[in-house]
Nucleic acid binder design. Structure first.
Lengths: 332, 332
DNA sequence: CTGAAAGCGCTAACAG
DNA sequence: CTGTTAGCGCTTTCAG
């Protein structure tokens, strides 16, 4: 910046004014400063500036998700990026793989970089360690899962209702022996979906088949194995509700292997790319990751803009998409 | 930091030493400083530090991809993140949507944040504007597409060979009337794939059906329409090579609509999630995004570690995966 | 082993 | 309309 000032033959503060589009600079001076800046290929150091700036904003956001390679996370990320970019804010992203240790490390890495706000999918038992940051004025918004140990804004899908919707749909097709394939039970969304499933069975007066409640699955492989187990026995389910996208994929593979894909009904939670092109088409409870991301960004920026109303949780609706696999009638 | 020093009853420099794990501090002092830091919930400001630090590293990388919501980009992003995280480096990601203007804006946003290195999928005609940064010591590594107007490291798939491989495979099944569905012709990967396709046809002495070279497609919708056009006429192709993943999906939908998915052969460039579960299974030329990301991160860090050998392009192999759609014989 | 002083690139506050 | 001075939180340099 000093170099630019020298080349343009003005004071350093004038350069600062031009760069920041502050008023009270003659257009001739603006011209000279800008051409000097281009000549020198000058990029202002935003971090150095924010060291002294009154609002101390780094124009930076930290995003913590399951994995940036996961399509759900990718969609959320994208909509947050779009909202952020329109405000000149850059986004750091970090993958947690549902590992609480990584959550702590990543949060700390972002805090050291003085992000203006944090958007995260919580993994740890409690996020109380963020209380001091929140009080200190750094907005914290939770996505996908509700926080615990801290009162903060959250944007989540209506997991229990979505699961109930899936379950009701299967019941309506005449199924009574419905298996539930769930993620790790300590994950909030997993337990919510399980709750929705069980409550809906309860409402319908269908006894809960304990044997068909398979939990703590976490990927395609374990889900595939779970299907193996379910259909190895004598008393088999006639329908499956797979409560997470990777689990759904594992379930499809498992059913295919036994050539049951057209005999056993399947509804998945969370949509899957190309689900409509499978045979049968995959029926799902679709979430709305774009909307989750957009709302999360909106909350962070509203907080940064001074909104100090009590935190609240926004629930984003899910929708049942019927494509065939969920409309299969009970068999045998 | 001053507060921590005060609470621990030591000088500010001692705190700095403890935080940075510098030697020559008694373990008793370390103890006191650390407990004070925890008590105050202190996170050092990495940017302020790097203002004065000799190497001026921000421990930050900028990544520019097509879209963080695209699975290919997501996989690349993830492997870069993993490599970066192990060095304590955080990653900024930005989506370009193949828009040159966005490229300039995003690069500038990252440069203002003083990223230590840049990994990008180029979109603009020339990346000469990065020359001065590169000379200034900021490593620039290109992924997916080769740079132009600048000599820099690049990690790319063997696009032409992969396309030739797909084409040869279709020729071997007996096809002679093969349609090519390509992305925008000004995109480097698109023209490379087109070149591989045409060269392979040439080697086989098969005349190039101009009518079947459909380019400048860019998404599912336009690809779907392209299939409509191809199969509306009297003289139709017996096989399709779709040279990009969204185009492949559009092509599948188009063929399905005409119930041709089991009659017209299809090979796609770039793998697609669940491609193996379709009927017929989708044959593809698979890229290796993990490897591209890993190698790109490796290059950036090698440069940061002082590697000053001449830049070079690393070509990552692609592989043909046969799943059915590419093994359909010519029909009618 | 520890601390005081200077300065990184920038902006706030105040002069001219 | 423009420049000067101080200081953001830290590391460097140098002196205890």
């Amino acid at each position: 910046m000093r170099d630019v000032a020298a080349l343009a033959g003005v004071g350093i503060k004038t350069v600062s004014r031009v760069i920041n589009r502050e008023p009270n600079v003659s257009s001739a001076t603006i011209e000279r400063v800008q051409s000097a800046a281009t000549r020198l290929n000058y990029h202002p150091d935003i971090q150095a500036g924010n060291l002294r700036r009154s609002d101390r904003r780094t124009q930076t956001l930290g995003l913590l998700v399951g994995s940036v390679a996961n399509p759900f996370s990718g969609a959320v990320h994208r909509s947050i990026e779009d909202a952020a970019a329109s405000r000149g804010v850059a986004v750091f992203a970090s993958s947690l793989d549902d590992d609480p240790a990584r959550e702590r490390v990543a949060v700390s890495a972002f805090l050291r970089r003085r992000v203006d706000g944090l958007i995260l999918t919580p993994v740890s038992k409690s996020q109380g360690y963020l209380l001091s940051e929140q009080e200190h004025g750094t907005p914290v918004v939770f996505i996908d899962r509700e926080p615990s140990g801290i009162d903060a804004d959250a944007i989540v899908s209506n997991n229990a209702e979505g699961a109930a919707l899936a379950t009701r749909h299967l019941l309506e097709q005449g199924h009574r022996r419905i298996a539930f394939l769930g993620d790790r039970h300590d994950i909030w969304t997993a337990s919510e979906r399980r709750r929705g499933f069980l409550e809906e069975l309860g409402r319908a007066g269908v006894p809960t088949g304990e044997a068909w409640l398979v939990e703590d699955l976490h990927d395609e492989h374990t889900a595939h194995a779970a299907i193996e187990g379910l259909f190895a026995g004598a008393r088999r389910p006639t329908a499956v509700f797979s409560a997470q996208n990777l689990i759904t994929i594992g379930a499809i593979r498992g059913l295919r292997e036994r050539e049951l894909q057209k005999k056993v009904a399947l509804v998945g939670f969370d949509d899957v790319e190309l689900g409509d092109l499978l045979d049968p088409g995959l029926s799902v409870i679709a979430q709305d990751p774009d909307r989750i991301g957009t709302l999360a960004a909106e909350r962070v920026f509203a907080r940064l803009d001074g909104d100090d109303r009590p935190p609240k949780t926004v629930v984003v609706p899910t929708t049942l998409i019927e494509r065939g696999s969920g409309e299969i009638r009970p068999h045998e």
